[in-house]
Design a protein around this nucleic acid. Structure first.
Lengths: 137, 137
DNA sequence: CTATTTACCTACTATATTGGTAGGTATGTT
DNA sequence: AACATACCTACCAATATAGTAGGTAAATAG
């Protein structure tokens, strides 16, 4: 079975939520987060690297360091976080970035994938990180 | 990148469309279809096996044999065809059939996946095979 | 200046899935 | 008997997933 969102994106979302729930503005060591969320610390490091490079979080070394949100919590969307960690989030290979299908013109199924992709994208971009805190989506 | 629908489902859909476009009721050899659709014949055989077992098409051996739709073309939905070939069509592993997440109760992200899954499922089940012929979805 | 704490970087691995290919067998028609 | 078709089994190369292991660099506390 193929999944549109892997552990990378799911874990990223949980970490961002953890950061949004705590004392926003303070740096939180990854170890604390991965303990709370029961996610392997070492694995999580690779994912944080993406989030840092994409500018979604700030990182600080040494004692008192860790990660914190780079912006106010309510300015993040779920879609943004997933894109940062997963790369493209698309339902079929036909829509992958850079791929150009030679049958695209004639293909009767392509419109379904386009529509589906639009729905998924619109939904994920419409949900704010803070919406998840209250459990309102 | 993970995709929710692989070539299996996409090819199956194209074959079903090909059958719906031609002389419905007559048996069409798979070779003809895979030539028209530019899909490897041998690979397609495995996919047809699923469609046959699920009762979506009828098969007939020997000369004059091949495959045909088992029901009127407008009674098929895209969702049905994809489920038959892909098994579960779900966006994340959390929702996979038989999987029971121990964090489900407390998980703040699960509602997104549920909602997303519902949207995808509803859409795919709402599109009829014949809708694709005119290009109306 | 040293110890500690944290992020960061590189490499490896086991397992599964995808997208096939190859070759033979069974069944039906002419 | 010849042929055309579906059906069955086995194999394979490439890629992605979900990690693990071990070290390096930077910041702070004492």
């Amino acid at each position: 079975m193929g999944f549109i969102v892997s552990t990378k994106g799911r874990y990223a979302l949980r970490v961002m939520l953890d950061l949004a729930e705590g004392d926003v503005g303070a740096y939180v060591p990854l170890k604390d987060i991965s303990d709370r969320q029961e996610i392997p610390h070492k694995y999580m490091e690779a994912i944080m690297s993406r989030l840092t490079k994409e500018g979604l979080v700030n990182a600080a070394h040494g004692k008192g360091g860790g990660y914190r949100l780079a912006r106010p919590a309510d300015t993040y969307t779920v879609g943004e976080i997933l894109m940062a960690t997963e790369g493209d989030v698309v339902p079929v290979a036909c829509l992958e970035g850079g791929f150009e299908c030679p049958r695209a013109e004639e293909c009767k199924t392509l419109p379904i994938w386009r529509k589906l992709d639009g729905m998924i994208r619109d939904y994920l971009n419409s949900v704010r990180l803070t919406d998840l805190l209250e459990g309102s989506p």
